[in-house]
Design a protein around this nucleic acid. Structure first.
Lengths: 190, 190
DNA sequence: CCTACCGATCGGTAGG
DNA sequence: CCTACCGATCGGTAGG
């Protein structure tokens, strides 16, 4: 009982923090801003969290974990590289529509993560990039995709997908996913 | 004499601020950080600038002005939409290679601009977007480009180009421009 | 979860 | 361009 309600209140505070970090940035958000948003006194925030940095860590590592799990599932599927890439586009849109603020913070504020969590985060990010590029190169080897530098192309695709996090308020998911898929697949189709 | 040296010292401080804002963000950078970077006491910074916000304004409005001028030149050329798009890709790479830190700050920190400058900035940004999308639509009307929503496609392209600001340390300009041009033009070619 | 409070740091000013 | 300093705000703690 107690545990459950404590956890959900903590999650409520983390979600409010994600909204503020998205709006004002991590450094531009104070614990007092957060307290007033959730209707507590500033010091009461510390009944639920250990530090401001913990809020950022929860947000960023939460997203990183979900992206890692999503990638793992897609990576192991026995389907073509093109279908895997489409599944990755869907994964990014799933994340964007489920937690728009958190994913924006994950994208833009991770550099403020404290060590040693920052190091873990960068490792997860590199592992994600490695698998993503393997899928791209797989498509190139099968003569389905065409590009020179998989690192550059990976980063362009990732940036295109990141834009969707700010776009979800304005577009329907189908329209966004369709335009993104057509754009990206045309871009690298052989 | 005096005026010239004052201006160049001011520009030196602005450039140092751009480096710090890129590294730590606007809110995460203090005047004391800046002072120690340029070898002055914190209060001496105010002999050259009026406020911390002025530093951000100079950086962001400087870039906005250069992008506006660059766009105006390309927009008025009597060439195909495809050539105009290629020229816009070159413009973004010119900017990235000339002032990598400033352009990153321009991209990521503009929301911290104080009013009424923020309003001016947003107007310039909207005018830039309007012309960019006109070029895209011109290519679509001539049946050279293919896409549904010019606003979505504009934003994807812009995000792809923004990535280059972080990439210039790692790649040669020709390689980056080639990969970006091929990617973007393939993406929307009919 | 609150009241009361801490030392550190912030952007910025006065005066020379 | 410096010394000296301002009030405001920061993240966070003690104690109940």
């Amino acid at each position: 009982m107690k545990t459950t309600s404590t956890i959900s209140k903590k999650q409520f505070i983390i979600n409010a923090a994600a909204d503020l970090f998205e709006e004002k940035g991590y450094s531009g958000t104070s614990i007092r801003d957060l307290a007033s948003k959730v209707g507590l006194e500033p010091s009461s925030i510390y009944s639920h969290i250990k530090s401001k940095e913990e809020l950022l860590s929860e947000i960023c590592m939460g997203c990183a974990g979900e992206f890692t799990v999503g990638m793992e599932k897609i990576f192991q599927l026995n389907i073509s590289a093109r279908k895997k890439l489409k599944a990755l586009i869907s994964l990014h849109l799933d994340m964007a529509f489920a937690n728009p603020a958190s994913v924006t913070v994950f994208n833009d504020e991770w550099r403020h993560l404290p060590e040693p969590i920052l190091e873990d985060f960068i490792h997860l990010r590199k592992a994600y990039e490695k698998k993503f590029r393997k899928i791209l190169i797989e498509g190139k080897d099968d003569e389905k995709f065409n590009f020179d530098n998989s690192e550059i192309v990976f980063n362009i695709i990732l940036k295109s997908l990141s834009w969707s996090y700010t776009a979800i308020k304005k577009y329907k998911r189908e329209e966004l996913e369709s335009e993104l898929s057509v754009f990206i697949l045309n871009a690298i189709n052989k």
